[in-house]
Amino acid sequence: MNNKRKPIVEVRNLTIGYDRQTVMEELNFSVFTGEIFVILGCSGCGKSTLLKHLIGLYEPFRGEIKIFGESIVRADEDEKRELMRQFGVTYQGGALFGSLTLAENVSLPLEEYTTLSREKIKERAYEKLALVDLQGFEEYMPAEISGGMKKRAGLARAMALDPKLLFFDEPSAGLDPITSAELDRLILRLRKELGTTIIIVTHELDSIFTVADRVIMLDKRTKSIIAEGEPHDLKKNSDNDWVREFLNRSNLKQV
């Protein structure tokens, strides 16, 4: 694995939440270049919230988030936009633009940010969609495809510009086991071929053990990270019962 240990995302003393409640307090962690980093936790504990703060959609109450060494918290509108287009994001529900076909969705960042010809852009969009097994659906509208397909199309769009950093919110939830396993393979391939750093929010234990280099586990009660480390290691050696239980569920599943 990558031993250079250069942080690509750094989080310091981060406290986040919404008007009425704090969701997480005093978070500290780093994600290193080339790493596949997984954010775990029970439903509703704040994984999506954390992700949305990392990508700069919400302002934290306190603390610092650095992406590519630059603060996304203190960046002004234009700097933030500049920073944002350097990474890709997928959302829990796909978030495809409803008025555009799948191919147009994927083409959009290419049209705006590259000088490629129209044919090249189309070719690239088709290629990305093929990567997530959506060949044949390029000219469909988002309303005409299933939830899992939307999710995959969202992935293709996030990868359109071959970003160095990708954020996935529950990429495999709602996918069948085979597609889900293929997605894991895709994630590993992206890292291997392009050296992409990937931050994933997920519940899928199979997928955690297949892809994750390191995980953090969020806890709703203490509003903090209760475990951090390599998943196999945590599963066996964590001193927290709840963490071991969470990770050992997969044994039941795999039998």
Binding site: L57, Q92, G94
Partner: peptide, 18 residues
């Protein structure tokens, strides 16, 4: 409003679009 529900607005922003 619907785009907001579908997180399309968030997606626009994080793609660096205004």
């Amino acid at each position: 409003g619907t785009m907001k529900v579908n997180e399309e607005i968030s997606a626009l922003e994080t793609m660096g679009f205004s």
